Amino acid sequence: MDIKFRCDCPFTSALDVVGDKWMLVIVKQMLIEGKETFKDFTESEEAIATNILSAKLKLLEEAGIIIKTQRPDNKKTNLYLLTDKGLALTPILVELATWSDNHLRDIHPIIQNGAGMEFLRKDKAAFASAIESKYREKLANTSVVKHSS
């Protein structure tokens, strides 16, 4: 699978990689919800079809946004983990959540509205830092081996 870029515009190029309906959802699931196995993703409320999930995970890996690894104690289960490039999407996810909170509640009033959203509203930078730090801590505590494709 090759990434196809429509032009040399940085905005359009970014959208060519992360701009489809599933890419940032998968990154959000990893970063905020702790999803890391294929099964984790298939059991999420977003209900991504397995064939689409496979294709999107491969594209995210090809783009260097995630890596596919294995636990040394269970080589049958692949883990998908965010790279530094993937974690650099954190501010974008935070801004999208902020925009949604501010502009979609009138047409989608049941958007999540708990303590996490309060934290986000109060201090976006601190919220982004907290979720990224929590993910990096998880990575530091995860024993994995690089998957050989």
Rank of each mutant, 00 (worst) to 15 (best):
T83G: 01
I111L: 12
S44D: 15
G86V: 08
R121A: 06
L82S: 02
G114P: 05
A88V: 02
D123K: 01
K39L: 13
M23V: 06
W22M: 11
A125C: 00
A115K: 07
W22P: 00
D16N: 14
I32D: 11
L82M: 02
I66C: 11
A97L: 13
K75Q: 14
V94E: 08
K122R: 08
A88D: 12
R71I: 01
L53Q: 03
R71V: 02
D123T: 01
D16E: 02
S143D: 08
S100K: 11
E43M: 13
F38E: 04
G116L: 10
E46T: 13
L15N: 14
D106H: 15
A14C: 14
L81W: 04
V27R: 04
S13M: 15
L31R: 10
Y80T: 06
L120Y: 05
E118D: 09
A125E: 10
Y80E: 08
D106N: 15
V27F: 03
R136H: 05
K35H: 14
K56N: 12
A63W: 07
K39Q: 14
K134I: 00
V144Y: 15
A47W: 10
T42D: 04
P72C: 12
D106M: 10
I107C: 08
D8C: 07
A14M: 15
R71Y: 10
A88E: 10
S100M: 14
K75S: 14
G64F: 06
E33Q: 07
C7A: 09
R105F: 10
S44E: 15
T142F: 07
E132K: 13
T42N: 09
F41S: 00
T69R: 10
K56C: 12
I111Q: 09
K134H: 08
P10D: 06
A140L: 12
A128H: 01
D8V: 08
P91N: 04
I32Y: 05
E33G: 11
S54L: 07
A125M: 04
G86A: 04
M117Y: 07
G19V: 01
I107L: 11
I65R: 01
E62M: 14
K58L: 13
R136E: 04
L89H: 11
E36L: 10
I65V: 12
L24I: 01
T83K: 02
I32P: 00
R71W: 05
A55R: 15
C9P: 03
P109W: 10
S143F: 03
D123G: 02
H108S: 13
K39I: 12
P10N: 08
Q29E: 15
P72N: 11
S129C: 04
V25G: 00
E43C: 14
V27C: 01
S100A: 15
Y80L: 13
N78C: 12
Q29K: 09
V27S: 06
L104C: 05
W22S: 00
L93K: 12
K76D: 13
G116N: 14
K35F: 03
K28M: 00
V17W: 03
V17I: 13
I52D: 11
T12A: 09
I131H: 07
A55G: 09
R6A: 15
Q112N: 10
G34S: 13
C7T: 14
V17Q: 03
E36Q: 15
K124G: 01
A115W: 07
E61D: 15
I66L: 09
P10S: 09
D40A: 02
A88K: 07
D73I: 09
T83E: 04
E33F: 08
L24V: 03
K35D: 13
F127E: 02
F11S: 09
L60N: 07
K138Q: 07
D84F: 02
